[in-house]
Design a protein around this nucleic acid. Structure first.
Lengths: 289, 289
DNA sequence: TATTAGGCTTAGAAAATCTGAGGCATAGAT
DNA sequence: ATCTATGCCTCAGATTTTCTAAGCCTAATA
Protein backbone atom coordinates (compact mmCIF):
# COMPACT_ATOMS: atom_id res chain seq x y z
CA UNK A 1 0.00 0.00 0.00
CA UNK A 2 1.98 2.93 -1.25
CA UNK A 3 1.43 6.26 0.37
CA UNK A 4 2.01 9.60 -1.21
CA UNK A 5 2.73 9.97 -4.89
CA UNK A 6 2.36 6.60 -6.61
CA UNK A 7 1.51 8.33 -9.87
CA UNK A 8 -1.08 6.04 -11.43
CA UNK A 9 -0.02 6.93 -14.93
CA UNK A 10 -2.84 7.12 -17.37
CA UNK A 11 -2.50 5.42 -20.65
CA UNK A 12 -0.41 7.44 -23.09
CA UNK A 13 -2.51 9.58 -25.35
CA UNK A 14 -0.51 8.81 -28.45
CA UNK A 15 -0.98 5.11 -27.94
CA UNK A 16 -4.71 5.61 -27.57
CA UNK A 17 -4.75 7.56 -30.80
CA UNK A 18 -2.92 4.75 -32.54
CA UNK A 19 -5.42 2.28 -31.16
CA UNK A 20 -8.31 4.37 -32.35
CA UNK A 21 -6.91 4.75 -35.84
CA UNK A 22 -6.09 1.07 -36.13
CA UNK A 23 -9.55 0.12 -34.94
CA UNK A 24 -11.28 2.53 -37.28
CA UNK A 25 -9.19 1.73 -40.33
CA UNK A 26 -9.00 -1.97 -39.67
CA UNK A 27 -5.24 -2.36 -39.82
CA UNK A 28 -1.97 -1.16 -38.43
CA UNK A 29 -0.56 -0.21 -41.80
CA UNK A 30 -3.52 2.00 -42.61
CA UNK A 31 -3.37 3.57 -39.18
CA UNK A 32 0.33 4.19 -39.52
CA UNK A 33 -0.35 5.88 -42.82
CA UNK A 34 -2.99 8.15 -41.38
CA UNK A 35 -0.83 9.06 -38.44
CA UNK A 36 2.20 9.60 -40.62
CA UNK A 37 4.42 7.03 -38.91
CA UNK A 38 5.69 3.57 -39.69
CA UNK A 39 3.62 0.47 -38.93
CA UNK A 40 6.24 -0.52 -36.38
CA UNK A 41 5.29 2.47 -34.29
CA UNK A 42 1.64 1.51 -34.31
CA UNK A 43 2.55 -2.05 -33.42
CA UNK A 44 4.51 -0.84 -30.45
CA UNK A 45 1.75 1.45 -29.24
CA UNK A 46 -0.94 -1.15 -29.42
CA UNK A 47 1.29 -3.70 -27.82
CA UNK A 48 1.96 -1.31 -24.98
CA UNK A 49 -1.71 -0.78 -24.39
CA UNK A 50 -2.44 -4.47 -24.48
CA UNK A 51 0.37 -5.10 -22.02
CA UNK A 52 -0.91 -2.54 -19.58
CA UNK A 53 -4.41 -3.81 -20.07
CA UNK A 54 -3.56 -7.45 -19.77
CA UNK A 55 -5.84 -8.37 -22.61
CA UNK A 56 -5.51 -8.39 -26.40
CA UNK A 57 -7.32 -5.77 -28.39
CA UNK A 58 -6.56 -7.21 -31.80
CA UNK A 59 -6.43 -10.74 -33.09
CA UNK A 60 -3.36 -11.03 -35.27
CA UNK A 61 -3.67 -12.95 -38.47
CA UNK A 62 -1.50 -13.24 -41.51
CA UNK A 63 -4.00 -11.27 -43.55
CA UNK A 64 -4.02 -8.44 -41.07
CA UNK A 65 -5.46 -7.76 -37.66
CA UNK A 66 -9.02 -7.87 -36.45
CA UNK A 67 -10.53 -6.35 -33.35
CA UNK A 68 -11.27 -8.72 -30.52
CA UNK A 69 -14.67 -8.57 -28.88
CA UNK A 70 -13.16 -6.29 -26.27
CA UNK A 71 -11.83 -4.01 -28.94
CA UNK A 72 -15.10 -3.95 -30.83
CA UNK A 73 -16.98 -2.92 -27.74
CA UNK A 74 -14.61 -0.18 -26.67
CA UNK A 75 -13.33 1.29 -29.91
CA UNK A 76 -16.33 3.46 -30.83
CA UNK A 77 -15.97 5.48 -27.66
CA UNK A 78 -12.41 6.32 -28.57
CA UNK A 79 -13.41 7.32 -32.06
CA UNK A 80 -15.98 9.71 -30.66
CA UNK A 81 -13.60 11.15 -28.13
CA UNK A 82 -10.93 11.81 -30.72
CA UNK A 83 -13.49 13.26 -33.08
CA UNK A 84 -14.46 15.69 -30.38
CA UNK A 85 -10.86 16.53 -29.73
CA UNK A 86 -10.12 17.14 -33.39
CA UNK A 87 -13.15 19.32 -33.68
CA UNK A 88 -12.03 21.30 -30.67
CA UNK A 89 -8.62 21.82 -32.23
CA UNK A 90 -10.20 22.90 -35.49
CA UNK A 91 -12.41 25.38 -33.68
CA UNK A 92 -9.48 26.68 -31.75
CA UNK A 93 -7.49 27.24 -34.91
CA UNK A 94 -10.39 28.94 -36.51
CA UNK A 95 -11.11 31.21 -33.60
CA UNK A 96 -7.48 32.21 -33.52
CA UNK A 97 -7.09 32.78 -37.25
CA UNK A 98 -10.52 33.21 -38.74
CA UNK A 99 -9.10 34.62 -41.94
CA UNK A 100 -7.09 31.65 -43.10
CA UNK A 101 -8.78 28.91 -45.09
CA UNK A 102 -6.92 25.66 -45.65
CA UNK A 103 -7.78 23.84 -48.85
CA UNK A 104 -6.74 20.29 -49.67
CA UNK A 105 -6.75 19.43 -53.35
CA UNK A 106 -5.45 16.98 -55.89
CA UNK A 107 -2.18 18.32 -57.28
CA UNK A 108 -3.57 18.55 -60.78
CA UNK A 109 -6.65 20.38 -59.60
CA UNK A 110 -4.63 22.69 -57.42
CA UNK A 111 -2.35 23.72 -60.24
CA UNK A 112 -4.67 23.69 -63.23
CA UNK A 113 -8.09 24.58 -61.87
CA UNK A 114 -7.62 26.27 -58.52
CA UNK A 115 -4.51 28.29 -59.17
CA UNK A 116 -6.00 30.29 -62.07
CA UNK A 117 -8.96 31.19 -59.90
CA UNK A 118 -6.97 32.49 -56.98
CA UNK A 119 -6.47 36.04 -58.29
CA UNK A 120 -10.20 36.50 -58.64
CA UNK A 121 -10.67 35.01 -55.19
CA UNK A 122 -8.19 37.43 -53.72
CA UNK A 123 -9.94 40.28 -55.42
CA UNK A 124 -13.35 39.27 -54.12
CA UNK A 125 -12.20 38.48 -50.60
CA UNK A 126 -8.98 40.35 -49.91
CA UNK A 127 -9.33 39.72 -46.18
CA UNK A 128 -9.10 35.96 -46.53
CA UNK A 129 -5.84 34.09 -46.96
CA UNK A 130 -6.19 30.81 -48.79
CA UNK A 131 -3.63 28.15 -48.06
CA UNK A 132 -3.47 25.19 -50.44
CA UNK A 133 -2.06 21.75 -49.82
CA UNK A 134 -1.83 19.23 -52.62
CA UNK A 135 -2.29 15.53 -51.89
CA UNK A 136 -3.17 12.39 -53.76
CA UNK A 137 -6.26 11.41 -51.81
CA UNK A 138 -8.90 13.33 -49.91
CA UNK A 139 -7.89 13.59 -46.25
CA UNK A 140 -10.03 12.43 -43.39
CA UNK A 141 -11.60 15.76 -42.60
CA UNK A 142 -12.45 14.67 -39.10
CA UNK A 143 -8.79 14.28 -38.33
CA UNK A 144 -6.92 16.71 -40.53
CA UNK A 145 -6.65 20.46 -40.25
CA UNK A 146 -8.23 21.25 -43.62
CA UNK A 147 -11.30 23.33 -44.12
CA UNK A 148 -12.15 22.46 -47.70
CA UNK A 149 -11.47 19.51 -50.00
CA UNK A 150 -11.32 19.76 -53.75
CA UNK A 151 -11.12 16.40 -55.54
CA UNK A 152 -12.74 14.32 -58.23
CA UNK A 153 -15.81 12.51 -57.03
CA UNK A 154 -19.06 11.16 -58.32
CA UNK A 155 -21.99 12.23 -56.23
CA UNK A 156 -24.29 15.18 -56.71
CA UNK A 157 -23.67 17.01 -53.45
CA UNK A 158 -20.85 19.46 -53.62
CA UNK A 159 -20.29 19.02 -57.32
CA UNK A 160 -18.80 22.11 -58.88
CA UNK A 161 -18.59 20.99 -62.46
CA UNK A 162 -18.77 17.90 -64.62
CA UNK A 163 -15.84 16.94 -66.73
CA UNK A 164 -15.12 15.39 -70.10
CA UNK A 165 -12.19 13.94 -72.02
CA UNK A 166 -10.86 15.08 -75.36
CA UNK A 167 -7.44 15.12 -76.99
CA UNK A 168 -5.48 18.34 -77.13
CA UNK A 169 -2.14 19.46 -78.50
CA UNK A 170 -0.19 22.60 -79.19
CA UNK A 171 -1.32 24.51 -82.29
CA UNK A 172 2.07 23.84 -83.83
CA UNK A 173 1.43 20.13 -83.47
CA UNK A 174 -1.83 20.18 -85.44
CA UNK A 175 -0.32 19.27 -88.84
CA UNK A 176 0.76 15.90 -87.50
CA UNK A 177 -2.82 15.03 -86.49
CA UNK A 178 -5.01 14.77 -89.57
CA UNK A 179 -7.19 12.05 -88.13
CA UNK A 180 -7.65 9.66 -85.27
CA UNK A 181 -5.46 7.05 -86.85
CA UNK A 182 -2.49 9.40 -86.59
CA UNK A 183 -2.54 8.85 -82.83
CA UNK A 184 -0.62 5.65 -83.31
CA UNK A 185 2.24 7.60 -84.86
CA UNK A 186 2.69 10.44 -82.35
CA UNK A 187 3.57 10.59 -78.65
CA UNK A 188 0.42 10.26 -76.56
CA UNK A 189 1.00 11.92 -73.22
CA UNK A 190 -0.76 10.53 -70.18
CA UNK A 191 -0.91 10.77 -66.42
CA UNK A 192 0.10 7.86 -64.22
CA UNK A 193 -3.01 7.96 -62.08
CA UNK A 194 -5.38 8.59 -64.98
CA UNK A 195 -3.89 5.99 -67.26
CA UNK A 196 -7.35 4.85 -68.31
CA UNK A 197 -8.29 8.18 -69.84
CA UNK A 198 -6.97 7.28 -73.27
CA UNK A 199 -8.75 3.94 -73.29
CA UNK A 200 -11.99 5.48 -72.10
CA UNK A 201 -11.95 8.12 -74.79
CA UNK A 202 -10.96 5.68 -77.53
CA UNK A 203 -13.76 3.33 -76.52
CA UNK A 204 -16.20 6.02 -77.62
CA UNK A 205 -14.23 7.75 -80.36
CA UNK A 206 -12.93 4.66 -82.13
CA UNK A 207 -15.22 1.82 -81.10
CA UNK A 208 -13.57 -0.57 -83.56
CA UNK A 209 -10.56 0.00 -81.35
CA UNK A 210 -7.38 -0.60 -83.27
CA UNK A 211 -5.52 2.47 -82.07
CA UNK A 212 -3.11 1.86 -79.21
CA UNK A 213 -1.65 5.09 -77.85
CA UNK A 214 2.02 5.17 -76.89
CA UNK A 215 3.97 7.88 -75.18
CA UNK A 216 5.50 9.21 -72.01
CA UNK A 217 3.71 8.88 -68.68
CA UNK A 218 3.85 11.68 -66.11
CA UNK A 219 3.28 11.47 -62.40
CA UNK A 220 2.00 15.01 -62.38
CA UNK A 221 -0.78 15.89 -64.76
CA UNK A 222 0.38 19.47 -64.87
CA UNK A 223 3.70 18.31 -66.26
CA UNK A 224 1.95 16.46 -69.05
CA UNK A 225 -0.04 19.57 -69.85
CA UNK A 226 3.10 21.63 -69.95
CA UNK A 227 4.72 19.16 -72.32
CA UNK A 228 1.69 19.21 -74.57
CA UNK A 229 1.84 23.00 -74.67
CA UNK A 230 5.50 22.70 -75.66
CA UNK A 231 4.55 20.49 -78.57
CA UNK A 232 5.79 17.21 -77.15
CA UNK A 233 2.72 15.30 -78.22
CA UNK A 234 -0.99 14.90 -77.84
CA UNK A 235 -2.56 14.78 -74.42
CA UNK A 236 -5.83 13.24 -73.32
CA UNK A 237 -7.20 16.34 -71.71
CA UNK A 238 -9.70 16.79 -68.95
CA UNK A 239 -11.81 19.78 -69.84
CA UNK A 240 -12.01 21.20 -66.36
CA UNK A 241 -8.26 21.21 -66.01
CA UNK A 242 -7.17 22.47 -69.39
CA UNK A 243 -9.96 24.97 -70.01
CA UNK A 244 -7.64 27.86 -69.28
CA UNK A 245 -5.05 26.66 -71.78
CA UNK A 246 -7.69 26.03 -74.42
CA UNK A 247 -9.27 29.44 -73.87
CA UNK A 248 -5.96 31.17 -74.34
CA UNK A 249 -5.13 29.08 -77.42
CA UNK A 250 -2.16 27.30 -75.93
CA UNK A 251 -3.90 24.00 -76.56
CA UNK A 252 -6.34 23.05 -79.29
CA UNK A 253 -8.57 20.05 -79.92
CA UNK A 254 -7.47 18.38 -83.17
CA UNK A 255 -10.52 16.15 -83.60
CA UNK A 256 -12.96 13.82 -82.02
CA UNK A 257 -15.74 13.99 -79.50
CA UNK A 258 -15.75 15.17 -75.93
CA UNK A 259 -16.48 12.12 -73.79
CA UNK A 260 -18.13 12.86 -70.43
CA UNK A 261 -16.66 11.13 -67.42
CA UNK A 262 -18.51 9.99 -64.36
CA UNK A 263 -16.42 11.95 -61.96
CA UNK A 264 -16.58 15.69 -61.64
CA UNK A 265 -14.90 18.28 -59.49
CA UNK A 266 -16.27 18.20 -55.98
CA UNK A 267 -15.82 20.71 -53.20
CA UNK A 268 -16.82 19.95 -49.65
CA UNK A 269 -16.28 21.28 -46.18
CA UNK A 270 -15.58 19.59 -42.91
CA UNK A 271 -18.95 20.57 -41.52
CA UNK A 272 -21.91 22.86 -42.06
CA UNK A 273 -21.02 26.54 -42.02
CA UNK A 274 -22.72 29.84 -41.47
CA UNK A 275 -23.06 31.83 -44.68
CA UNK A 276 -20.96 34.62 -43.26
CA UNK A 277 -18.08 32.31 -42.46
CA UNK A 278 -14.81 32.79 -44.38
CA UNK A 279 -14.72 29.13 -45.34
CA UNK A 280 -18.22 29.36 -46.68
CA UNK A 281 -17.35 32.48 -48.62
CA UNK A 282 -14.39 30.76 -50.25
CA UNK A 283 -16.51 27.74 -51.09
CA UNK A 284 -19.15 29.93 -52.69
CA UNK A 285 -16.63 31.92 -54.72
CA UNK A 286 -15.00 28.72 -55.97
CA UNK A 287 -18.32 27.08 -56.69
CA UNK A 288 -19.37 29.95 -58.89
CA UNK A 289 -16.06 30.45 -60.61
CA UNK B 1 2.56 24.77 -53.00
CA UNK B 2 4.09 21.61 -51.66
CA UNK B 3 3.15 18.38 -53.29
CA UNK B 4 3.31 15.01 -51.69
CA UNK B 5 3.87 14.52 -47.98
CA UNK B 6 3.91 17.89 -46.23
CA UNK B 7 2.70 16.25 -43.02
CA UNK B 8 0.46 18.91 -41.52
CA UNK B 9 1.27 17.88 -37.98
CA UNK B 10 -1.64 18.12 -35.65
CA UNK B 11 -1.17 19.75 -32.35
CA UNK B 12 0.49 17.46 -29.84
CA UNK B 13 -2.01 15.66 -27.67
CA UNK B 14 -0.04 16.12 -24.49
CA UNK B 15 0.10 19.85 -24.99
CA UNK B 16 -3.64 19.93 -25.50
CA UNK B 17 -4.11 18.02 -22.29
CA UNK B 18 -1.93 20.51 -20.47
CA UNK B 19 -3.96 23.35 -21.95
CA UNK B 20 -7.18 21.73 -20.87
CA UNK B 21 -6.00 21.15 -17.33
CA UNK B 22 -4.63 24.66 -17.00
CA UNK B 23 -7.85 26.14 -18.31
CA UNK B 24 -10.03 24.03 -16.05
CA UNK B 25 -7.96 24.50 -12.92
CA UNK B 26 -7.16 28.13 -13.56
CA UNK B 27 -3.40 27.93 -13.27
CA UNK B 28 -0.29 26.23 -14.51
CA UNK B 29 0.80 25.08 -11.09
CA UNK B 30 -2.51 23.36 -10.42
CA UNK B 31 -2.47 21.79 -13.85
CA UNK B 32 1.07 20.58 -13.37
CA UNK B 33 0.02 19.04 -10.09
CA UNK B 34 -2.89 17.19 -11.64
CA UNK B 35 -0.77 15.95 -14.50
CA UNK B 36 2.05 14.95 -12.21
CA UNK B 37 4.69 17.16 -13.83
CA UNK B 38 6.44 20.39 -12.96
CA UNK B 39 4.91 23.75 -13.80
CA UNK B 40 7.73 24.35 -16.24
CA UNK B 41 6.45 21.52 -18.39
CA UNK B 42 2.99 23.03 -18.51
CA UNK B 43 4.45 26.41 -19.34
CA UNK B 44 6.33 24.91 -22.24
CA UNK B 45 3.32 23.05 -23.57
CA UNK B 46 1.05 26.04 -23.48
CA UNK B 47 3.70 28.21 -24.99
CA UNK B 48 4.10 25.74 -27.81
CA UNK B 49 0.41 25.78 -28.56
CA UNK B 50 0.27 29.53 -28.48
CA UNK B 51 3.24 29.72 -30.83
CA UNK B 52 1.67 27.38 -33.34
CA UNK B 53 -1.61 29.17 -32.98
CA UNK B 54 -0.20 32.63 -33.24
CA UNK B 55 -2.43 33.91 -30.48
CA UNK B 56 -2.22 33.89 -26.68
CA UNK B 57 -4.49 31.57 -24.75
CA UNK B 58 -3.66 32.89 -21.32
CA UNK B 59 -3.03 36.37 -20.01
CA UNK B 60 -0.03 36.17 -17.73
CA UNK B 61 -0.09 38.14 -14.54
CA UNK B 62 2.09 38.04 -11.49
CA UNK B 63 -0.78 36.56 -9.50
CA UNK B 64 -1.27 33.76 -11.98
CA UNK B 65 -2.71 33.31 -15.42
CA UNK B 66 -6.15 33.95 -16.77
CA UNK B 67 -7.75 32.68 -19.92
CA UNK B 68 -8.01 35.12 -22.78
CA UNK B 69 -11.34 35.50 -24.56
CA UNK B 70 -10.09 33.01 -27.11
CA UNK B 71 -9.24 30.56 -24.38
CA UNK B 72 -12.54 31.02 -22.62
CA UNK B 73 -14.43 30.27 -25.79
CA UNK B 74 -12.49 27.17 -26.76
CA UNK B 75 -11.57 25.54 -23.47
CA UNK B 76 -14.90 23.88 -22.67
CA UNK B 77 -14.75 21.81 -25.84
CA UNK B 78 -11.39 20.42 -24.79
CA UNK B 79 -12.67 19.60 -21.34
CA UNK B 80 -15.52 17.63 -22.85
CA UNK B 81 -13.30 15.83 -25.30
CA UNK B 82 -10.86 14.78 -22.61
CA UNK B 83 -13.70 13.75 -20.35
CA UNK B 84 -14.94 11.48 -23.10
CA UNK B 85 -11.48 10.10 -23.61
CA UNK B 86 -10.99 9.40 -19.93
CA UNK B 87 -14.33 7.70 -19.75
CA UNK B 88 -13.41 5.57 -22.73
CA UNK B 89 -10.19 4.53 -21.03
CA UNK B 90 -12.02 3.71 -17.85
CA UNK B 91 -14.52 1.61 -19.74
CA UNK B 92 -11.75 -0.14 -21.56
CA UNK B 93 -9.98 -0.99 -18.33
CA UNK B 94 -13.18 -2.23 -16.84
CA UNK B 95 -14.12 -4.36 -19.80
CA UNK B 96 -10.70 -5.90 -19.77
CA UNK B 97 -10.50 -6.54 -16.04
CA UNK B 98 -14.00 -6.49 -14.66
CA UNK B 99 -12.91 -8.11 -11.44
CA UNK B 100 -10.50 -5.48 -10.22
CA UNK B 101 -11.82 -2.53 -8.26
CA UNK B 102 -9.52 0.41 -7.64
CA UNK B 103 -10.16 2.32 -4.45
CA UNK B 104 -8.61 5.67 -3.60
CA UNK B 105 -8.58 6.50 0.10
CA UNK B 106 -6.98 8.73 2.67
CA UNK B 107 -3.96 6.90 4.10
CA UNK B 108 -5.44 6.87 7.58
CA UNK B 109 -8.74 5.53 6.32
CA UNK B 110 -7.04 2.94 4.16
CA UNK B 111 -5.00 1.57 7.03
CA UNK B 112 -7.35 1.93 9.96
CA UNK B 113 -10.82 1.58 8.55
CA UNK B 114 -10.57 -0.15 5.20
CA UNK B 115 -7.82 -2.61 5.89
CA UNK B 116 -9.64 -4.37 8.76
CA UNK B 117 -12.66 -4.81 6.52
CA UNK B 118 -10.83 -6.39 3.63
CA UNK B 119 -10.89 -9.96 4.94
CA UNK B 120 -14.67 -9.87 5.20
CA UNK B 121 -14.84 -8.31 1.77
CA UNK B 122 -12.73 -11.07 0.33
CA UNK B 123 -14.93 -13.63 1.99
CA UNK B 124 -18.11 -12.11 0.61
CA UNK B 125 -16.77 -11.50 -2.89
CA UNK B 126 -13.85 -13.81 -3.52
CA UNK B 127 -14.02 -13.14 -7.24
CA UNK B 128 -13.23 -9.45 -6.86
CA UNK B 129 -9.73 -8.10 -6.36
CA UNK B 130 -9.62 -4.81 -4.51
CA UNK B 131 -6.66 -2.56 -5.19
CA UNK B 132 -6.13 0.32 -2.79
CA UNK B 133 -4.21 3.53 -3.36
CA UNK B 134 -3.67 5.99 -0.54
CA UNK B 135 -3.56 9.71 -1.25
CA UNK B 136 -3.98 12.93 0.60
CA UNK B 137 -6.85 14.39 -1.39
CA UNK B 138 -9.72 12.87 -3.37
CA UNK B 139 -8.67 12.51 -7.00
CA UNK B 140 -10.53 14.00 -9.89
CA UNK B 141 -12.56 10.94 -10.78
CA UNK B 142 -13.13 12.17 -14.27
CA UNK B 143 -9.42 11.99 -14.92
CA UNK B 144 -8.02 9.29 -12.69
CA UNK B 145 -8.30 5.55 -13.00
CA UNK B 146 -10.08 4.98 -9.68
CA UNK B 147 -13.45 3.36 -9.27
CA UNK B 148 -14.24 4.35 -5.69
CA UNK B 149 -13.17 7.16 -3.38
CA UNK B 150 -13.15 6.87 0.39
CA UNK B 151 -12.48 10.16 2.19
CA UNK B 152 -13.82 12.45 4.86
CA UNK B 153 -16.55 14.72 3.61
CA UNK B 154 -19.61 16.51 4.82
CA UNK B 155 -22.64 15.89 2.70
CA UNK B 156 -25.34 13.31 3.09
CA UNK B 157 -24.95 11.43 -0.17
CA UNK B 158 -22.53 8.59 0.05
CA UNK B 159 -21.99 8.93 3.78
CA UNK B 160 -21.00 5.66 5.35
CA UNK B 161 -20.68 6.71 8.95
CA UNK B 162 -20.42 9.78 11.12
CA UNK B 163 -17.43 10.29 13.29
CA UNK B 164 -16.54 11.70 16.69
CA UNK B 165 -13.45 12.69 18.67
CA UNK B 166 -12.37 11.35 22.04
CA UNK B 167 -9.02 10.79 23.71
CA UNK B 168 -7.54 7.31 23.87
CA UNK B 169 -4.46 5.70 25.26
CA UNK B 170 -2.99 2.31 25.96
CA UNK B 171 -4.45 0.58 29.03
CA UNK B 172 -1.00 0.72 30.62
CA UNK B 173 -1.10 4.50 30.27
CA UNK B 174 -4.37 4.94 32.18
CA UNK B 175 -2.78 5.61 35.61
CA UNK B 176 -1.19 8.79 34.31
CA UNK B 177 -4.56 10.18 33.22
CA UNK B 178 -6.73 10.75 36.29
CA UNK B 179 -8.47 13.78 34.82
CA UNK B 180 -8.54 16.22 31.94
CA UNK B 181 -6.00 18.50 33.57
CA UNK B 182 -3.40 15.70 33.39
CA UNK B 183 -3.32 16.25 29.63
CA UNK B 184 -0.96 19.13 30.15
CA UNK B 185 1.54 16.78 31.72
CA UNK B 186 1.64 13.89 29.25
CA UNK B 187 2.55 13.62 25.55
CA UNK B 188 -0.50 14.41 23.41
CA UNK B 189 -0.12 12.70 20.08
CA UNK B 190 -1.61 14.33 17.04
CA UNK B 191 -1.73 14.13 13.27
CA UNK B 192 -0.26 16.86 11.10
CA UNK B 193 -3.33 17.24 8.90
CA UNK B 194 -5.79 16.96 11.76
CA UNK B 195 -3.97 19.32 14.08
CA UNK B 196 -7.25 20.95 15.10
CA UNK B 197 -8.70 17.79 16.57
CA UNK B 198 -7.31 18.48 20.03
CA UNK B 199 -8.57 22.04 20.03
CA UNK B 200 -12.00 21.01 18.79
CA UNK B 201 -12.38 18.39 21.46
CA UNK B 202 -11.09 20.65 24.22
CA UNK B 203 -13.48 23.39 23.17
CA UNK B 204 -16.31 21.10 24.22
CA UNK B 205 -14.68 19.08 26.98
CA UNK B 206 -12.97 21.96 28.78
CA UNK B 207 -14.80 25.11 27.71
CA UNK B 208 -12.82 27.24 30.16
CA UNK B 209 -9.91 26.23 27.99
CA UNK B 210 -6.71 26.42 29.92
CA UNK B 211 -5.30 23.07 28.83
CA UNK B 212 -2.78 23.29 26.02
CA UNK B 213 -1.79 19.85 24.70
CA UNK B 214 1.84 19.24 23.79
CA UNK B 215 3.36 16.25 22.10
CA UNK B 216 4.74 14.69 18.96
CA UNK B 217 3.08 15.29 15.62
CA UNK B 218 2.85 12.53 13.03
CA UNK B 219 2.38 12.83 9.32
CA UNK B 220 0.58 9.51 9.26
CA UNK B 221 -2.34 9.06 11.61
CA UNK B 222 -1.73 5.33 11.71
CA UNK B 223 1.71 5.99 13.15
CA UNK B 224 0.21 8.08 15.93
CA UNK B 225 -2.24 5.28 16.67
CA UNK B 226 0.56 2.79 16.80
CA UNK B 227 2.49 4.98 19.21
CA UNK B 228 -0.54 5.37 21.42
CA UNK B 229 -0.96 1.60 21.48
CA UNK B 230 2.68 1.36 22.51
CA UNK B 231 2.04 3.66 25.43
CA UNK B 232 3.77 6.72 24.04
CA UNK B 233 1.01 9.09 25.09
CA UNK B 234 -2.60 10.03 24.67
CA UNK B 235 -4.08 10.40 21.22
CA UNK B 236 -7.07 12.40 20.09
CA UNK B 237 -8.87 9.55 18.43
CA UNK B 238 -11.35 9.49 15.63
CA UNK B 239 -13.91 6.86 16.47
CA UNK B 240 -14.27 5.49 12.98
CA UNK B 241 -10.55 4.92 12.68
CA UNK B 242 -9.72 3.50 16.08
CA UNK B 243 -12.86 1.46 16.65
CA UNK B 244 -10.98 -1.75 15.93
CA UNK B 245 -8.29 -0.96 18.47
CA UNK B 246 -10.84 0.04 21.07
CA UNK B 247 -12.90 -3.07 20.48
CA UNK B 248 -9.90 -5.28 20.98
CA UNK B 249 -8.81 -3.38 24.08
CA UNK B 250 -5.59 -2.04 22.65
CA UNK B 251 -6.83 1.48 23.26
CA UNK B 252 -9.15 2.78 25.96
CA UNK B 253 -10.92 6.07 26.58
CA UNK B 254 -9.62 7.57 29.84
CA UNK B 255 -12.32 10.22 30.25
CA UNK B 256 -14.37 12.89 28.65
CA UNK B 257 -17.12 13.14 26.07
CA UNK B 258 -17.22 11.99 22.49
CA UNK B 259 -17.45 15.13 20.35
CA UNK B 260 -19.13 14.66 16.98
CA UNK B 261 -17.35 16.15 14.01
CA UNK B 262 -18.98 17.56 10.93
CA UNK B 263 -17.18 15.34 8.53
CA UNK B 264 -17.88 11.67 8.19
CA UNK B 265 -16.58 8.86 6.06
CA UNK B 266 -17.85 9.16 2.52
CA UNK B 267 -17.73 6.62 -0.26
CA UNK B 268 -18.51 7.54 -3.84
CA UNK B 269 -18.10 6.15 -7.30
CA UNK B 270 -17.06 7.74 -10.55
CA UNK B 271 -20.52 7.27 -12.01
CA UNK B 272 -23.81 5.44 -11.56
CA UNK B 273 -23.47 1.69 -11.62
CA UNK B 274 -25.63 -1.33 -12.21
CA UNK B 275 -26.34 -3.24 -9.03
CA UNK B 276 -24.65 -6.32 -10.42
CA UNK B 277 -21.45 -4.47 -11.13
CA UNK B 278 -18.34 -5.45 -9.15
CA UNK B 279 -17.72 -1.85 -8.16
CA UNK B 280 -21.25 -1.56 -6.90
CA UNK B 281 -20.91 -4.78 -4.96
CA UNK B 282 -17.76 -3.53 -3.26
CA UNK B 283 -19.42 -0.24 -2.44
CA UNK B 284 -22.39 -2.00 -0.91
CA UNK B 285 -20.26 -4.35 1.15
CA UNK B 286 -18.19 -1.45 2.46
CA UNK B 287 -21.23 0.67 3.13
CA UNK B 288 -22.76 -2.02 5.29
CA UNK B 289 -19.61 -3.00 7.10
C1' DT C 1 11.32 44.90 4.39
C1' DA C 2 10.94 40.09 4.13
C1' DT C 3 8.01 36.46 2.49
C1' DT C 4 5.08 33.90 -0.36
C1' DA C 5 2.92 32.51 -4.53
C1' DG C 6 2.85 31.90 -9.28
C1' DG C 7 5.18 31.89 -13.60
C1' DC C 8 9.32 32.26 -16.78
C1' DT C 9 13.81 30.74 -18.71
C1' DT C 10 17.62 27.81 -19.68
C1' DA C 11 20.45 23.92 -20.09
C1' DG C 12 20.75 19.37 -19.63
C1' DA C 13 18.62 14.76 -18.69
C1' DA C 14 15.19 11.29 -19.24
C1' DA C 15 11.68 9.05 -21.64
C1' DA C 16 8.73 8.41 -25.24
C1' DT C 17 8.55 7.67 -29.93
C1' DC C 18 10.10 6.55 -34.38
C1' DT C 19 12.78 4.34 -38.08
C1' DG C 20 14.96 0.76 -40.78
C1' DA C 21 16.17 -3.69 -41.75
C1' DG C 22 15.18 -8.40 -41.46
C1' DG C 23 11.60 -12.20 -40.56
C1' DC C 24 7.49 -14.91 -40.60
C1' DA C 25 3.05 -16.48 -42.17
C1' DT C 26 -0.78 -16.65 -45.33
C1' DA C 27 -3.35 -15.94 -49.70
C1' DG C 28 -3.58 -15.88 -54.24
C1' DA C 29 -1.18 -16.25 -58.69
C1' DT C 30 1.83 -18.63 -61.88
C1' DA D 1 4.26 -26.52 -56.00
C1' DT D 2 6.56 -22.34 -56.09
C1' DC D 3 6.38 -17.37 -56.29
C1' DT D 4 4.90 -12.94 -54.92
C1' DA D 5 2.57 -9.58 -52.24
C1' DT D 6 0.60 -8.22 -48.12
C1' DG D 7 0.55 -7.34 -43.41
C1' DC D 8 2.47 -7.69 -39.12
C1' DC D 9 6.44 -8.65 -35.80
C1' DT D 10 11.06 -7.89 -33.57
C1' DC D 11 15.16 -5.47 -32.40
C1' DA D 12 18.65 -2.05 -32.05
C1' DG D 13 19.70 2.43 -32.43
C1' DA D 14 18.43 7.29 -33.48
C1' DT D 15 15.48 11.19 -32.93
C1' DT D 16 12.24 13.97 -30.90
C1' DT D 17 9.41 15.09 -27.21
C1' DT D 18 8.94 15.92 -22.67
C1' DC D 19 10.56 16.76 -18.20
C1' DT D 20 13.37 18.52 -14.33
C1' DA D 21 16.25 21.54 -11.60
C1' DA D 22 17.80 25.86 -10.40
C1' DG D 23 17.60 30.63 -10.59
C1' DC D 24 15.06 34.94 -11.65
C1' DC D 25 11.02 38.04 -11.88
C1' DT D 26 6.73 40.32 -10.28
C1' DA D 27 2.96 41.45 -7.32
C1' DA D 28 0.56 40.84 -3.15
C1' DT D 29 0.99 39.97 1.76
C1' DA D 30 2.73 40.23 6.49
Amino acid sequence: MAVSPPKPKDMPLNALRALEAAARLGGFAAAADELGVTPAAVTAHVKGLEAELGAPLFARGAKGVELTALGKRTAPAFAQAFDALSQAVRDLREEALPQVVHVAALPAIAQLWLSPRLPALRAEAPDIAVSITAMEAPPNLKRSPYDLCLFYGDGAVGRITDDALFPVCAPSFLPRLQGVEDLAAVPCLSDATWCDDWANWLAVAVPDGRVVPRGPVFSLYALAVEEAVNGAGVLMGRRALIAAHVARGALVQPFGPQVPIAEGLHLWAARPLRRSHPIWRVARLLGQG
